[in-house]
């Protein structure tokens, strides 16, 4: 049995099946990310005035990643164009670059993630707050990177470039602000002394967490949006790789079908790029 229009376009719609299918799928993806963007906006306007974190992320890394993804989008469309012109070799080269871009993107992303997981905020029993990266070599206490954030036993924790805020806010309002992270405390942060390093004893710590998704609603939505996007990058790269490598034999037998596959996977890849084009300003810049 042969499904009609699997390769050739149907005359009245001018489309082959997979092209209709992928656009429908992309439409649902738009709604998926749309819902998450709505959530982002709501959480942001719902945060007490002035408490939404700004510039918590490394703009340079974000920008490099944006450029990497844009470059990959260019190579994806060029690889499809090469196939259209019958240049299989060039297609392969372009798509190899795409895959490298995907890899680079994921590497940079994982550096950024790691950075956030090493960044801690300790609330001490004397009411002060210590914020910074933990120096794992000098630290002797067992500090978890994952929930639940509980310390046991003894030992010390060494925080690099610690930002120390001496007064722990006590009123409900200040408390709410603290929940949103150190940014709202910038006034006090100015007064706070910048120290290169700070040592804390386990027994001093009242509560703490790192800057994982659980830290506040900003990190939560940041990890969710970028995590879901990263899953799409990985998924898209796997599909592109499969067509590029293991399934390349299809090209000889049925070049039209093969080119269609490249086109469809390319459409998905462009959507991934598109989502990032919005994620970058929203999370890194605004």
């Amino acid at each position: 049995m042969e499904i009609p229009y699997a390769v050739k376009p149907r005359p009245d719609t001018g489309l082959y099946n997979a092209k209709v299918g992928i656009w429908l799928f992309l439409a649902s993806e738009v709604m998926l990310f749309g819902a998450l963007f709505s959530s982002y906006i709501l959480l942001r306007v719902g945060a007490p005035a002035g408490t939404w974190p700004h510039h918590w992320l490394n703009v340079i890394l974000g920008m490099i990643n944006t450029i990497v993804l844009i470059a990959s989008s260019v190579t994806v469309v060029l690889s499809w164009a090469s196939l259209k012109m019958g240049q299989f070799g060039r297609y392969r080269v372009f798509q190899a670059i795409t895959l490298l871009c995907a890899l680079t993107f994921m590497l940079i992303k994982s550096f950024e993630y790691r950075d956030k997981f090493n960044h801690y905020e300790f609330q001490l029993k004397d009411g002060s707050v210590v914020d910074g990266h933990v120096d794992w070599e000098k630290t002797t206490a067992k500090v978890p990177k994952w929930i639940p954030f509980k310390l046991s036993g003894e030992g010390k924790i060494v925080v690099e470039h610690a930002n120390v805020i001496s007064k722990y806010p006590t009123t409900a309002e200040n408390h709410a602000q603290l929940m949103e992270g150190p940014a709202p405390l910038s006034k006090e942060a100015k007064e706070a002394e910048e120290r290169p390093e700070k040592e804390i004893e386990v027994s001093q710590v009242k509560a703490f967490s790192n800057y994982g998704p659980w830290h506040n609603t900003y990190t939560a939505i940041y990890f969710t949006l970028t995590g879901l996007h990263a899953l799409h990058v990985v998924g898209g790269a796997i599909v592109i790789f499969m067509i590029w490598g293991p399934l390349a034999g299809v090209y000889r037998k049925d070049p039209v079908r093969y080119t269609n596959r490249v086109e469809v996977s390319g459409l998905f890849w462009h959507l991934v790029d598109l989502v990032w084009i919005f994620l970058f300003p929203v999370l890194y810049l605004l």
Binding site: A27, S28, M31, F33, A35, T217, T224
Partner: peptide
């Protein structure tokens, strides 16, 4: 096609609340 994805998004967020201690 168009109404389910937002619930999927919501599901992911609630799963994060449920497992990872976020506060969506």
């Amino acid at each position: 096609l168009l109404a389910f994805p937002p619930l999927e998004a919501a599901g992911v967020l609630q799963l994060m609340d449920n497992l990872l201690g976020t506060s969506f």
